[in-house]
Simulated scan of single mutants.
Amino acid sequence: MMGGIQGKTAIVTGAGRGIGRAIARHFVDRGANVMFADSDEAALSEAMADFDEADPKVRSFSGRMSEKLATANLLSATLDAFDRVDILVNAHRLVKASDPLDTDLDVLEQLLRQNMMAGLRMTQVVAKRMIKQAEGNPDTGSGGAIVNLSTLAAQHPVPTMLGYSIAYAAQEQATRAMALVLAPHRIRVNGVRFGSVMSHELKDSLRDKPELRDRIVEATPMGRIAPADELVDTVLYLACDASRFVTGQILTVDGGRSLADRVGTQTV
């Protein structure tokens, strides 16, 4: 791909499993230095088992992305390991049901904090570092790229998942707002809205409700559920200089499902 990521440094949150892990591993394969970040230590250890401990391109960080201190410590750990950060992928998320007529405010706050505020705070912290890095090179290349993973629930509200839907609708608006703020610094902020993709959460849902698979496949014009790897190249495109004039956009990867979403229950 034109304008690849070889030699660049990326932070990928939610990298312990599922889509986040697939993105982080693909970035390593493409020659990037990658900080795998996740709140699940066991999942993170499993993800890191695929790499040589002495590999200088790979590091890991365990912490709750919803906590301010963890955000600051993650950036510090990345700078200690690689001296800079060029790419941020906010792929961590929390999937939890919430009743629109009887919403537990604690659950709603948790979903907003994890799925919107954590990524926004990480964006703010990393963007400040990217701005500082770009100050010495005002006329060369990209100042950085930030990619936020979203969900069809942001566009097509899921009645049984009120907090989840609201959080990602807010996250998408934050993506657009931060794109405007950071564009003068040559930092691009984009999102990827996905559905009918085999995430870790969807695997769990299908284990509990195997009949859901047929409903998703039927609702997807391309007639299948895509593996996580098929989402990765879209994220790579937005992270690299091939998309250097693209910012504030939410690209949809869903096999056409959002054209006529008929599932209406679970959008993960």
Rank of each mutant, 00 (worst) to 15 (best):
D38P: 07
S150A: 02
M130H: 02
A54T: 13
V34L: 04
V232N: 04
M222S: 15
G264A: 11
S199W: 02
D254G: 08
L162Y: 02
D52L: 15
G31Q: 06
V147Q: 09
Y164N: 00
K209V: 06
D261H: 15
S45A: 10
P100M: 03
P221G: 09
P138R: 13
A179I: 03
I146N: 02
G163T: 00
V232Q: 03
L101Y: 04
F27I: 01
A242Q: 04
T151R: 08
I225G: 09
M222E: 10
E172P: 07
L74M: 09
L88P: 05
D83F: 07
K132I: 12
F82T: 03
T267C: 12
R224M: 15
V12T: 08
A183Y: 04
T234F: 10
P210Y: 06
S66Y: 01
E201T: 05
V197I: 14
R93G: 07
D52T: 15
F27E: 02
N137S: 10
S60Q: 14
S150T: 01
E211T: 12
A183G: 12
N190F: 07
V107C: 08
T220Y: 15
M117N: 06
S258V: 07
M222G: 13
Q173N: 15
A49V: 14
V235P: 00
F245S: 13
S45I: 12
